[in-house]
Amino acid sequence: MGRAGKSAAGRGVLRDLPPTFTYSQAMAAGVSRWQLYRLRDQGSIEVVGRGLYRRHNAEAADIDLIEIARRAPLATLCLATALARHGLTDEIPSRIDVAVPRGQHRPITTAPVAWHLFDPVTFEIGRTNLPLDFETSIGLYNAERSIIDAIRLRHREGPDLAYAALRRWLRQRGASPSKLLAMVRHFPKAERPLREALEILL
């Protein structure tokens, strides 16, 4: 089979691969290394990260978040990144704030990531899933958990982020201070400053 035929065959095999796939998955599907590089050069696929590719005809998605989710299955958007997702800050972080349980591997990514190590005991509290495409999702802390984290880490993230987010959250329909206070009991270091802030703002 000539090179053109091999390239066409590679494109055909890609239809059987998920939108985002690894080098190993491509090899297992019968796509040779030469075909893979050829498809990349032709624009049929794009490199998401080292050994990670995405079909050009796949639905639009946030490639950075897909890479993070594939590299670290427990990755969860937190702090300023999560607050921005919930419309609670206008801050645009230069790096994506991602939490993983303390003791978990923090992979090297092409995407700009600020890794945060959170206590495994409370890691799942307030954690939801954000779909990225039909096969991939990434963790996302809900608004209440994101506010609590910003308050308990205000010495690192700055107090303005936490209290501005709390003020904006209180103006949202459905905001429940009692729900926030119930959740903060799991984070003793944040409980007192949160209660004091609520007394001022309410």
Rank of each mutant, 00 (worst) to 15 (best):
A4C: 03
G5C: 09
A9Y: 10
T20N: 07
F21E: 01
Y23L: 12
A26R: 01
V31K: 00
S32C: 01
S32I: 03
W34I: 12
W34M: 13
R38A: 15
R38L: 12
R38D: 15
D41G: 05
Q42I: 11
G43T: 09
G43S: 10
I45A: 04
E46G: 13
E46D: 11
V47D: 00
V47I: 11
R50S: 09
G51H: 04
L52A: 02
H56S: 11
E59A: 13
E59G: 05
E59Q: 10
R70A: 04
R71E: 02
L74V: 12
L77V: 05
L79D: 09
A84L: 14
R85S: 03
R85L: 04
G87V: 08
G87N: 09
G87S: 11
P93W: 12
P93D: 06
D97V: 11
V98L: 00
V98F: 09
V100L: 14
V100R: 06
V100S: 05
P101A: 04
P101T: 08
H105R: 15
I108L: 14
P112C: 10
P112L: 10
P112Y: 04
V113N: 01
A114S: 13
W115N: 01
W115R: 04
H116V: 08
H116E: 04
L117V: 09
F118D: 01
F118W: 10
P120E: 10
P120I: 12
P120D: 07
P120N: 06
F123I: 01
E124Y: 12
G126N: 00
T128A: 12
D133H: 01
F134M: 00
T136Y: 04
L140C: 00
Y141R: 00
A143M: 07
E144Q: 14
S146Y: 10
D149I: 14
D149R: 12
R152M: 04
L153F: 15
R154H: 13
R154A: 11
E157A: 12
G158K: 07
P159D: 00
L161Q: 01
L161E: 00
L161Y: 07
A164M: 11
R167D: 05
L170G: 03
L170N: 03
R173C: 06
R173W: 02
A175H: 13
S176I: 02
S176T: 08
S178T: 15
S178F: 13
K179Y: 14
L181D: 02
A182Q: 08
R185M: 12
P188R: 06
R195W: 05
I200W: 15
L202Q: 14
L202K: 14
L202S: 11
